[in-house]
């Protein structure tokens, strides 16, 4: 058996494949379909301090080789996530899990991270400073190096688990943001979040998404994601978790070649719920085919 294990911020993953936040719920929908313990880990649905309904529907639109979403961080709020979702998650997943956190102020991020940091099963905090679908928070922290550093520093001061900061591609220079969060104490970075985009309905001449704009994901963004992972991995010393349009085992290897330590898989889970299981099963064969050593 090929050893696929990797080390992510001091925690061993059986393999580098990680379903991305917002595309895997809290795991149990997928656990009905396959044993999700085959995963390296997964990043659960983005959590905020308070309950959020999110944006009005439609929240989803098709694009060439991908999709737009403007869900808007729907989640029950951190207290309910801890009280109701994590116990259910624990029943179906028996490894450290990645807790994805969003906020609208530095205090929000710290509040939510502090609580999730105390949960035994949480292995990493993935601090999302890059959600393009909410106003007055999310991405506004991820487009300015000083703000990104401030969130990172504040979270690091109050938490013990590795902090992975999730970066936005909707910036002029992602490397400057990555360096800023590294200097502020981040244990890793993950990238990319979705690229802002739109579609219009030809009948109404209005945007398809009720939110107007949304985040583009799927194979369409893969080359952009690779380029940014490569740029960041060459500029920082902390681990880089690569994501953006990853759909196959070959895509995973390409992300690793670009410098990623582990790889998140997002939209692919939505079009094929078995996507991550298949990727993991295909990895040894793909490694052999291209002459990779474990």
């Amino acid at each position: 058996m090929v050893d696929l294990s990797v080390d992510l911020c001091g925690i061993r993953l059986d393999n580098p494949v990680i379903p991305a936040s917002g595309c895997f719920g809290y795991g149990y929908e997928f656990a009905e379909l396959y044993d999700i313990n085959v995963l390296g880990t997964f990043s659960f649905k983005g959590t905020t301090r308070e309950l959020r309904f999110g944006n009005p529907t439609p929240r989803i639109a098709e694009t060439p080789a991908g999709m737009l979403n403007a869900v808007g961080l729907q989640n029950p709020g951190v207290d309910k996530v801890i009280a109701e979702e994590l116990p259910k998650l624990k029943k179906v997943f028996h490894k450290p899990v990645m807790a994805n956190v969003s906020g609208f102020s530095i205090e929000d991020y710290v509040y939510t991270c502090e609580r999730l940091d105390k949960e035994a099963q949480v292995g990493w905090l993935e601090v999302n400073i890059s959600c393009p679908n909410v106003h007055g928070g999310g991405m506004s922290f991820g487009t300015d190096p000083a703000q990104a550093a401030a969130v990172t520093k504040a979270v690091k001061e109050k938490t013990t688990k590795p902090v992975i900061v999730k970066l936005s591609p909707n910036v002029t220079d992602i490397v400057s943001i990555a360096k800023a969060v590294e200097a502020a104490g981040a244990d890793g970075v993950s990238l990319i979040n979705t690229l802002m985009g739109m579609r219009f309905d030809l009948r109404t001449k209005k945007p398809i998404l009720a939110n107007g704009t949304g985040g583009l994901s799927g194979p369409a963004v893969f080359p952009v994601a690779l380029r940014m992972v490569w740029q960041v991995a060459n500029a920082v010393k902390i681990p880089v978790v690569g994501m953006g349009g990853v759909t196959t085992a070959e895509n995973v290897l390409e992300m690793l070649a670009a410098g990623a330590t582990a790889v998140e898989v997002g939209a692919a889970n939505l079009t094929d719920p078995f996507a991550c299981k298949k990727i993991i099963e295909d990895l040894p064969g793909a490694m052999r085919k291209y002459g990779w050593q474990a």
Partner: peptide, 22 residues
Amino acid sequence: EERMGCGFGACMGCTHKTTAGY
């Protein structure tokens, strides 16, 4: 009817408010 991402509950793309919550 609603535009959907996944169709099986993972993406939260089709949520409606009801008297029994989201």
